[in-house]
Simulated scan of single mutants.
Amino acid sequence: MSTDFQQARIALGLRLRELRTEGGLTGRQLAERLGWTQSKVSKLETGRQTATHDDLKAWAEGVEQPAAEGELAARLRVLESHSRSWRRQLAAGHRPVQDTLTVEYERSTVLRAWEGSMVVGMLQTADYARHVFSSYVELHQSPRDIEDAVRARVRRQESLYQQGKRYRIVMWEAALRALVCPPAVMAAQLDRLSGVIGLDTVSLGIVPFGVSLKLPPANGFWVYDERLVIAEDWHAELWLTDAENVALYLRTWEALAASALYGPDAHRVITRCRRALGAI
């Protein structure tokens, strides 16, 4: 099943082809006029290549419809900030979503995360993940492939120990206190976080209650190298690839990370949250 992003790219390609044919040009003629290869024209029209703003400007001029540039630019902005609805993504369950994410983790070297509401997936225990997936299955009324999704998430965590990877994870203290699972499961989850501190591939920062914040602790997101941002909302994920938005999320991450505690200080915050659960 194609993603919302790919569907939008195909739709843009169909509009480009429509403009070309309205101008009475073949693909070869337009390529020659623009100084491009014919394969580039074909890939743009079939949605196999993402156009740049310069490509669209040249296309509009090449087909002698310069007024279409604004429309094409608007379509591209939608593409660059594309939304992948949960309804579409979860039609086959949570496991395919986890497999798609695994590809992005594998092709990335430096991964930055912010999460203010729950423990990030890369650090979740199997029991904690099971409760999270169960909650979202009920919310979205999606296929109940919880165990497959848990296995996929836990398997992805092997990359935490992969030489050369750099995970820079920052969480708000609220994520360590939100009981999205039974207290005993939360206790084990906090113990897991304590064990992560000290891994040479992981920098775990905790933003404690009571510290000054440069920005409100809003929605969670991941930045993959400096090429992709994935931010979650209740109805969809945003996959952002344009440089301007990636830079914005990097600045956001830096601002939030500046308030975090690391190493022994982070461990003390985790221990405080663990004690708040009582004798479990």
Rank of each mutant, 00 (worst) to 15 (best):
L176D: 05
V229Y: 00
E104G: 05
R15K: 15
E45Y: 00
I230F: 01
L123D: 05
Y167A: 01
W59R: 01
A51M: 04
D200T: 13
V185Y: 05
E71C: 00
P66Q: 03
I206M: 05
W253N: 03
A257E: 02
A257M: 00
A266T: 12
Q124P: 14
L139T: 13
Y262K: 01
R192V: 13
D4T: 15
Q65P: 02
L228V: 12
L215R: 12
W172I: 03
S159Y: 08
R227T: 06
G205A: 11
D233T: 14
D127M: 04
Q124W: 08
H235N: 11
T125M: 09
S134Q: 11
L30V: 00
V137E: 14
G205E: 13
R268H: 04
V137F: 06
R48C: 14
S42C: 00
E64H: 10
D145I: 12
L79I: 13
S134D: 15
R84P: 11
G164E: 13
P66D: 07
P183Y: 01
L256S: 02
Q29N: 03
A73K: 05
G278D: 04
A91Y: 08
A255I: 07
T21W: 03
R88S: 08
M118P: 07
R155G: 14
P183K: 06
Y262R: 08
P216L: 12
Q141W: 02
L256K: 05
W172D: 06
R272M: 13
E254A: 15
W234R: 08
V78S: 05
A184C: 11
Q7W: 06
I206G: 04
W234G: 03
D242H: 07
S81W: 07
L139V: 14
R20P: 09
R275V: 13
A31K: 00
H131K: 08
Y249T: 01
P216E: 13
L76V: 05
T271N: 08
V223K: 09
L238R: 12
T21F: 04
E115N: 07
M1D: 15
L240G: 04
A74Y: 01
K214Q: 09
Q163L: 14
V211K: 06
L261K: 09
V150S: 06
R272T: 13
K40E: 00
D242C: 08
A67N: 11
A68C: 03
G220S: 08
S117V: 08
W253H: 03
V110M: 10
L44D: 09
S81P: 06
S194R: 12
W234A: 10
E237Y: 15
L261F: 14
A236M: 06
W234L: 12
T46Q: 03
V223M: 04
S2N: 15
R268G: 01
V196S: 12
R17Q: 11
A92M: 13
R156M: 15
Y161P: 05
